[in-house]
Design a protein around this nucleic acid. Sequence first.
DNA 1: ACAAGTACGGTACTGAGTATCGTACGTTTT
DNA 2: AAAACGTACGATACTCAGTACCGTACTTGT
Lengths: 224, 224
Amino acid sequence: MPKPSISHRLAEAAVALFDENGYDATTVDDIAARAGVSRSTFFRHYHSKEDAIFPDHDALLARIDTRLRASAADTAIVAITDAVRLVLAHYVDDAEVSLRRYRLVREVPALRDREIASVARYQRLFREFVGEWLGDSPDAGLRAELMAASVVAAHNQVLRGWLRAGGAYDPFGLLDHALGYVIATFRHLEQPQEKGEQVVVATFSRSASPRAVMEAIQAHLEAR
Amino acid sequence: MPKPSISHRLAEAAVALFDENGYDATTVDDIAARAGVSRSTFFRHYHSKEDAIFPDHDALLARIDTRLRASAADTAIVAITDAVRLVLAHYVDDAEVSLRRYRLVREVPALRDREIASVARYQRLFREFVGEWLGDSPDAGLRAELMAASVVAAHNQVLRGWLRAGGAYDPFGLLDHALGYVIATFRHLEQPQEKGEQVVVATFSRSASPRAVMEAIQAHLEAR
DNA sequence: ACAAGTACGGTACTGAGTATCGTACGTTTT
DNA sequence: AAAACGTACGATACTCAGTACCGTACTTGT
């Protein structure tokens, strides 16, 4: 039988022990002992105790980066919504691991912060990509920030729901639906207005005050 | 003279030492020694070494919470954009401290992650507030997530620019501009569509200035 | 066979964070 | 005024994450 790699054995031992005794009560020595290696070896494979639970974020980040650079999408917002599917796919592919990790992350503050920091790196990658795409158009930095944040937020919302439900369904339909919101919101902000007469269709609730209507329109005009 | 509190002396000593020797090279003993107290006392006032730089996030979070609950805004998105001004104001009020902290946070990964986690708590507060506001309307969870993320993203973008510029200008105008994007984007998503909605179709020549457009629309609205 | 690189074990150290003592000081109670 | 009490600080000892370094086996190329 092909004996599993030490990294994999360490990660497995870590998750098992965290499940059994809790995160804080588990020492690195315990993990190394269960994996049958020394403490030194643990730190050679993972830079910290937390790392043993987030083994492949860096690899995924790199994959997303190459996916973005190779993207043939015609708008930046579509490119990053396309890329964020990789993230969800990564969780869904290892559903069991994701769910176990989710239960852990939910109750250990240190791990929660770590997870949030990881997500922030994805968001930063998206932001920089959109920023380069938009160049020095007006409000490029702001729009890049908003697009990246919205895409990540949509993804997180779908992912959290899926995790809370125990991974009981296929979340990609919901992700598409959520990203539909985002794309519809940002696509028209992204590209320079085309030549020719424009038609603007705006709908407001019947009870909207004139002032509210004016503010909404003005914001759009100034953002143009 | 009113001698400063120990907490304040500790925070001051921490920032000073971090500036002089760097974060990692500064031990808690050093901080306590400079503040003229014992190591025990340091940990009695701050739960961790990082905490000495983020002294008042919890207090600000509480203030924002009460501000939200007391909000008289007529839409959720306006309420949270209103609340996020408090965050920016908090940074601007202590500009010197904010700038020094920014330089530190930028180069110490541990502090950066901590900062990101703090921001995530604001975002969570906003998300929960909007979620309650929207109730169980369709896609309430998704829209709450998107609104909160966008408001926080707009704030972060403005704040980062201001910090990078060394706090050289008044950022509230930029914040209003950025939040204008967000409000315009989400206000129409917020309230359930009513029956008998109205459709307005307006066409303008390509060369029409925003001001001319605004005047024409305003005349129509006021005549309604 | 020999050299070199690689992966692991072992040891020792620093420093953050926790637990638990005792003690000094101010406040309340009688 | 004296005793009881709560609070804040200092001191000590401990656990454990993370780093540095050294020695050793085992593999790979020549």
